[in-house]
Design a protein around this nucleic acid. Structure first.
Lengths: 234, 234
DNA sequence: TTCTTGTCACCTAGGTGTTAATAT
DNA sequence: ATATTAACACCTAGGTGACAAGAA
């Protein structure tokens, strides 16, 4: 996914964070509906190809997110750029996301691309579903960690040498509750299959991995995207 | 799911098997379409609740299927009953289905109900996707096995004592390529959420685990279920 | 005849940005 | 004025039995 990450990074990647779970809802709403809104995945998805592991040994694969700086940002629409809006809000609870296949043998991890598509982002400080908690309007650097499961009894002693961390700078992003940069929105729509309903042309180039037999996206042509009457827009 | 299995078993459970994968298609179709039809799950799903494991030890959970007898069957529509149609066809390649979370700690397995909903049945003798291969019109008994992953170096010696097999007789079924007993079809439609489109009444009783706030299935009322003209049925 | 195959409409389940309303 | 929430239409992905046509 590096090419796609680079494309986003040049524009300044944004990732949506949403509330999720039921704990943050008002007691009334919890009783009446108990409708936890789904947290959001990252797009692009963080994916890695692994080499050089011991095929027979167990490893844990995980990710975490560290603040890029101690700042809070705002987006200036007139200049289409991000501005510093002050010092960072209090840090969110630090969490890690274990790849759900962990632990697994090196052979298993190396067999194919490892995809962190179950990882979800939230801005709910009280989240109790194990999702990654981030502050909106702050910048983050995803990190990828490989932990060797040491079979020795005194494995704590070797903790230092039993894990490796990998950082891909092109995966940095700003957490947002709604997209700020319109070009980011357009690139998400163009490249994320789940947003196909918002494309209004170009059945060709995207998705990148389209099959030869795939049909053109005729259904996306010239379709109204305002089915609900909008009194403020004639 | 015991109550539901019992209900099916009283009628004579049937499970659909389909071809799947691409290896069995003609070379032309493989090239032009390579459209592997999806194999079918079991319904009801085989689910177990586990107790008494060592919380810290690793276990593999798996299932296999053994013939109930050495017979081939046919369904007599006039009497609505199964008849022996001769000796069994040659046995299919024996396969096991490992629960995809295997291996995992006892604590993990005991934490919640373990569901074998990824298990798929096929009648394709050449299947290379690891699905369970069964002969249509033959009867099978699902079996559930728990394997303790012995950390000792000479674990082969203890293979005998390191696994336990559980058989639930109410999960027996006849493999079919199309349902024979109409009452089985109706019970599948009534109880499988994915078949909701074929229900023509009764928004209440099913599904069993419907939430208090769930809406009645108004959309299933009095809808035509013969959208394609059927010349043989006026 | 009897059984199997392939296509289909209709579902479940859940991931998108949009939009209007609300909160700060 | 800016940021967040919640409901929504529209997708992807895949699990149903019905049905007509084909195979044995």
């Amino acid at each position: 996914m590096k090419a796609l990450w680079d494309e986003f990074n040049q524009l300044g990647t944004e990732m949506i964070v949403t509330k999720a779970g039921s704990i943050e809802l008002s007691p009334l709403k919890t009783v009446l509906f108990s409708v936890p809104l789904p947290p959001r995945r990252m797009f692009p998805t963080f994916q890695v190809k692994l080499f050089g592991m011991d095929p027979m040994a167990d490893y844990m694969l995980l990710m975490d997110f560290v603040p890029v700086d101690d700042k809070r940002y705002r987006y200036a629409f007139h200049s289409s750029s991000w501005l510093v809006a002050g010092k960072a809000d209090p840090a969110t609870p630090g969490r890690v996301h274990y790849h759900p296949d962990s632990p697994a043998k090196g052979a298993q991890w190396m067999k194919q691309i490892v995809s962190f598509d179950k990882l979800k982002l939230t801005n709910n400080l009280l989240d109790d579903n194990g999702h990654i908690i981030l502050n909106s309007m702050h910048r983050y650097q995803p990190r990828f960690h490989v932990v060797y499961v040491d079979p020795r009894k005194d494995s704590e002693k070797y903790a230092e040498e039993n894990f490796k961390t990998f950082v891909f700078e092109e995966t940095r992003f700003t957490a947002v509750t709604a997209y700020q940069n319109h070009r980011i929105t357009q690139l998400k729509i163009a490249s994320n299959p789940f947003a196909k309903g918002f494309r209004d042309c170009d059945p060709e180039d995207w998705p990148r991995n389209h099959r030869p037999g795939a049909l053109p996206l005729m259904s996306a042509f010239a379709r109204s995207r305002n089915p609900v009457a909008s009194p403020t827009q004639p």
